[in-house]
Amino acid sequence: MKKDWPLWEVFVRSKNGLEHRHFGSLHATDAVMALENARDVYTRRNEGVSIWVVESKYITASNPSENGELFEPAKSKVYRHPTFYKLPDELKHM
């Protein structure tokens, strides 16, 4: 019965007020061990105040080969940006 330890992704909040950011991954048998290992591997120098771990297999990622269909339509929608709207110079702070 030989079983490899599953892979986990580690997210760390570096300080309150900031979001959790992906820091890397590691192997662990369960969530408790993943948290403990994440603390040792990714926060040896006060890099964080909170850690999330999630087993890598639960992450669904978009495929870069479909980036065209996914992301290009947004490029033509310039009216979503404030600079699209022409306003007189006298108007300050808008």
Partner: peptide, 12 residues
């Protein structure tokens, strides 16, 4: 390593 894995599975 095997024991840790077996324990995790049992808990699960």
């Amino acid at each position: 390593r095997d024991a840790a894995m077996a324990y995790a599975e049992k808990q699960h």
